[in-house]
């Protein structure tokens, strides 16, 4: 390989590196247990409405797919994707977004935190 070619490849590599998203802020829920969260998602059958990777049978199309959720910018198109807000939203969406189709689901604060933790682990 000629020196010019090597330089060209090196340059291309640097350009492609520039195209990649920077390793930035990744939300996580300190008190939440992602493994528990997955069980809660399965137990409450959230998969009726959502595609949730890792939860068996979760392939609903009523609500948004939740893969790679940590990279979403907004929750429900209106709130910043922040752990505390997500924890509130999974439990009681209608109080935050009155037109939403997602009902308030009965669960404990801890379960909501676990669910948020799992969604951020995807």
């Amino acid at each position: 390989m000629s020196v010019t070619a090597r330089i060209a490849i090196g340059w291309l590599y640097l350009v492609l590196c520039g195209c990649m998203a920077p390793e930035g802020y990744e939300p996580h829920v300190p008190e939440g247990d992602p493994r528990q969260g997955r069980e809660v998602l399965a137990e409450l059958e959230c998969g009726v409405c959502h595609v949730i990777p890792g939860v068996p049978g979760a392939r609903g199309r009523v609500g948004p797919a939740l893969a790679d959720y940590k990279r979403n910018v907004y929750i429900a198109g209106r709130y910043p994707n922040d752990p505390d807000i997500l924890t509130r939203f999974v439990r009681d969406a209608p109080s935050m977004s009155p037109d939403t189709a997602m009902p308030a689901i009965e669960m404990s604060e801890a379960q909501a935190r676990d669910i948020a933790a799992y969604l951020y682990s995807l």
Partner: peptide, 19 residues
């Protein structure tokens, strides 16, 4: 097929063909 609570009810009504 589904447990009976408000979430599964809404999901079943809106997406019964998925379930």
């Amino acid at each position: 097929v589904l447990k009976n609570h408000i979430g599964t009810m809404a999901g079943w009504i809106a997406g019964s063909q998925d379930v």
